[in-house]
Amino acid sequence: MGATTKRRLASAALAIGALAASATARAGYDQLNLPVGVTPISQTAYDLHMLITWICVIIGVAVFGVMFLSIYLHRKSRGVTPAKFHHSTAAEIIWTIIPCVILVGMAYPATKGLIAMEDTSEAEVTIKVTGYQWKWKYEYVEDGITLWSNLDPTSRAAIHGDVSAAENYLLSVDQPLVLPVGKKVRLLITSDDVIHAWWVPQLGMKKDAIPGFVNEMWIRIDDDKAGIYRGQCAELCGKDHGFMPIVVDARAADGYAAWVTERQAAKTAAAPATAGTLAQATAQPTPAARAAF
């Protein structure tokens, strides 16, 4: 390649680099990496992610370093004569064993993390999450509260228009899932139609919602981490797969208790129901509501 070609390629690379740099600057570092999140599980996942990433980076730098060194040193244009060796049992054994050791080093914390995520102890709050095409239903099993959570209408209106008109475009809903901080919450996840997946990155876990089956997942949001956390359906579920967000509103104990009381009062006013009667189960989605898009 000629000098001009090289110069042109270099300036193209520079332009792309500048674009990438500005993207990073505007969006911030959190747009490059996994979030640390607000639960012990998300912290475990983040720590493991960073550990494995750095191990990969170090191995990569070493291997590619040797490769580039070789490309520099062992070029025909430098007038070298090629060596003739074509195997070395010692070297081959070494580079089989070293990766094995590294893998064991990764597998140990990974196994520990996985076991820590498995926890079948009693939870204080149980919520049944049902995926529908294309919305979520949340049922608070102990408190008898039912919520439907749809894509926020302002987002929906903006899809074919000006997306900047909608706050948290595609990541806001009409009714968020309200959760208490500091308490173990157990989600029982299922689906009415096709497979969906419930995922909020800040909570560190995703689980498939499978029709006819109930999956379990648990969350304990750190005491000091009240706030709004956003996620999306993560398993292709048809036309509006990209338009069934999840919003979690994590509240401190008293705020959560007040919310529960308020919702229960509102419901009693509308239709009295307790466990053992059937009134609460009537809130089925109507066909009209399902064809909203």
Partner: peptide
């Protein structure tokens, strides 16, 4: 990994 290392070792001290 064995494969990648072998490729790099093939390049090593060749005349590329």
């Amino acid at each position: 990994g064995v494969k990648v290392f072998n490729w790099v070792a093939t390049m090593w001290r060749g005349a590329m």
